[in-house]
Every structure is written in C-alpha cells, then in structure tokens.
C-alpha cells in the first residue's frame, strides 16, 4: 500500500462520506470553480506582465504593467525619487531597532527600548521631512504605503501611552479621575473615525493660538491617535482586570507606592496579557488609516484611487484595487496571525 492511500481514503471520507456530503461538495466545488477559474485566468494566465505603456496590455487579462509603471507611487506617493532612499533608511532603522530590542539581553532591553522610543520617532521625522542638512520634503508629497506605515506608527505612538493612562484612570479609586477617563474613552469610542478626522482637520487649527499653523498630516495623525487611544484603553483595561488583585496588594504590602506598584508590578503583567487585544486594535488602526482619504491625504488606497484618474491608464480599476487590497491583506493577516500566536503560546 502506498503512503498516499490512507490520505486519499480520508479525503474521500471528508468530501464524499455520505450522499448529502457529496452533493454539498459538488455544489460548492461548482461555485468555487465559477468564481476562481475566471479570476485565475484574469490575474495570472491572461495577464500582461512586461511592457511600458497601456498599449502593451492584452485585452481580457490583468495588466500588471500598470502596477509596475506606478510602483514608485504606490510605495512613496509623490516623494521626490532622488530622496526616496531616506524613506528606505528610516524603514530599515525601525526594523533594525525592533530586532535589536527583541534580541537584546533582558537587562538592556528596557533601557534600549526607552532610548529607541525617544530617538527613533524624532529621527524618522527628520529623515522624512528633511531640514537640518537634508532637503525639506513637504508632507503634501508623501503618500502610498510609506504614508500608511507612517500614520499607523505615529498614531500608535500617541494612542498607546494615552490608552494606558486612561485605562489606569478608569481603574482609579479617585472618582474625578475615573469620570474623566470614562468620558474620554466613551466619547471617542462612540463617534465615527471619519468624523474625527474631519474634526481634527477643522478644529485643531481653530483651538490653537492664531499663527500656529499645524500640518495637515499631523492633524490626521493626532485625530486617529485619540480615537485609537480610547480603543487601546479598553484593550489595556482587559489586561488590568485579568490581573489578580493580589498582585497590587502584595506590591503595596512590600511598601511600593502607587506609581512604583503600577510601573513595576501591575503594568508589565497587564500589558503582556493585553498584547493580543492591543495588536488587534493596531490592525484596526492600519485599516482605518485609509480614511485620511477624506481630507485629501493619499495613503496606499488613496494613491490607488487617484491613479484611476490617469488618462494614460484608463480602466485599470481592478488592477489598482487588487494590488492595494493584497498589500493591506498581507499586512493585516500577518499581524492577526502574530496576535493569535502570542495568545496561544501564552496559554500553553
């Protein structure tokens, strides 16, 4: 008997075990073929991969030439091509720093992490925006995947500390602090993010003293940061509530004050518990960065949408959507798998 035989029996059992099962299998297989075969033909078999203009595209299939021609825009928006190395460098720096922190010895990790938390965001802004020796690039020229990643990271730099603060505030024994935290969290969770982005872009310049111009992109990042902070706060609250009360009581009994008990005992454990939930909020943030489209900031989806208006590439809707959608899916799917992985690895 060949080793494939038991597997074959298993599959026959699974798909055609009973008449009803077989019928369902056939019906589903028919539907699947009806959808998948034209899709595969369009995306792979009949597609055009090489060329330079629209005339190179074969009719009936996808024209990936379009994506190749616009790849730079999809990634960097209208960032000047000569300066794009700065974006790449910033990305490499973030990745290297992340890896260094992850693999650093335990005793160095905290110090390294804090240093990176202070230095990297400033370094990133300097590299991207320029000034101090680098050619200035206005945020108007930023776009594409780079902007999606930028907004996600910088909005969460606002959201995570604020979220932790409000989660602690909501658990506080002091009624005024608790009330303020509850109002903050429930307000931002109750309103649509699109409205918040409008709100930030209209109200932020209004409530700051006249003459202080605030960058369009910064407004969107601040707006998103506040909303996600409220969702992060709820994620952290889950971790705080899951932690046995004995932890704080024991810390207090050892003579630690509120801040020391929180910083050394409660938060490190609570954050570890809420890491999967926080990752899920981060995924939501990545998906919601697309909404900056409504204030004419073009992230990956916005660039894809804007590229449909190019008269040289009429009718490339499906290619633009397929490409941008795949990138979003890969990012979010990878993050959600990672979140699930930390959740299951903890349970064991």
């Amino acid at each position: 008997m060949s080793p494939a035989a038991p597997a074959l029996t298993l599959w026959r059992q699974r798909l055609f075990g009973s008449p009803l099962t077989g019928l369902v299998t056939l019906a589903l297989a028919f539907c699947l073929a009806w959808v998948a075969i034209p899709l595969i033909r369009w995306a792979l078999i009949d597609a055009t991969w090489v060329g330079t203009t629209r005339n190179d595209c074969a009719p009936g299939g996808a024209c990936w030439v379009f994506v190749r021609a616009r790849f730079g825009q999809f990634m960097y928006g209208f960032y000047p091509p000569d300066e794009r190395w700065r974006v790449n460098l910033a990305a490499i720096l973030f990745v290297v720093a992340g890896a260094a922190i992850a693999f650093a010895p335990q005793r160095l990790r905290l110090r390294l992490g804090l240093a990176a938390l202070v230095a990297l965001p400033l370094l990133g802004i300097w590299l991207l925006a320029g000034g101090l020796g680098l050619r200035p690039v206005e945020t108007r020229e930023w776009g594409g995947l780079m902007l999606t990643v930028f907004i996600s990271i910088y909005a969460s730099l606002i959201a995570i500390p604020l979220g932790i603060a409000f989660a602690l505030g909501r658990q506080s024994e002091l009624p005024v602090i608790r009330l303020i935290s509850v109002i903050f969290i429930e307000f931002w969770r109750g309103v649509p993010i699109i409205a918040v982005i409008f709100l930030a872009s209209l109200l932020l310049p209004l409530i700051l003293p006249g003459g202080i111009g605030i960058d369009r992109l910064a407004r969107a990042v601040i707006g998103l940061g506040f909303v996600i902070a409220a969702y992060m706060a709820e994620a952290v609250r889950g971790g705080l509530q899951a932690l046995p009360a004995g932890q704080r009581e024991a810390a207090t009994a050892l003579g630690l004050n509120y801040w020391k008990a929180t910083g050394l005992i409660v938060l490190p454990q609570a954050l570890r518990i809420s890491l999967p939930a926080m990752t899920n909020e981060f995924i939501a943030l990545v998906k919601n960065t697309t909404l900056v489209l409504v204030v004419s900031i073009l992230d990956l989806l916005g660039i894809a949408q804007a590229s449909l208006a190019d008269p040289n590439w009429v009718g490339m809707n499906m290619e633009a959507y397929a490409f941008s959608g795949t990138i979003y899916w890969l990012i979010c799917f990878a993050l959600s798998r990672w979140s699930r992985h930390i959740e299951t690895s903890r349970r064991r």
């Binding site: 589903l28 699947l32 909404l291 949408q305 979003y328 979010c332």
Partner: peptide
C-alpha cells in the same frame, strides 16, 4: 463538512483583514 467550513473560513479571513473603505471604493 470540510470544504464548506474552509470556504467560510477563507471568507472570514478575507474580509476581516482588508479596510472597509477598500470595499466601499471597490
């Protein structure tokens, strides 16, 4: 049913990991 549950799972993983605005524009 293996195929049914796999297809349902694929649908769930597909829509949950793509921005809603993408679907609206699409």
């Amino acid at each position: 049913h293996w195929l049914l549950s796999t297809l349902a799972g694929a649908y769930i993983e597909f829509v949950r990991n793509i921005p809603l605005l993408f679907f609206v524009l699409f």
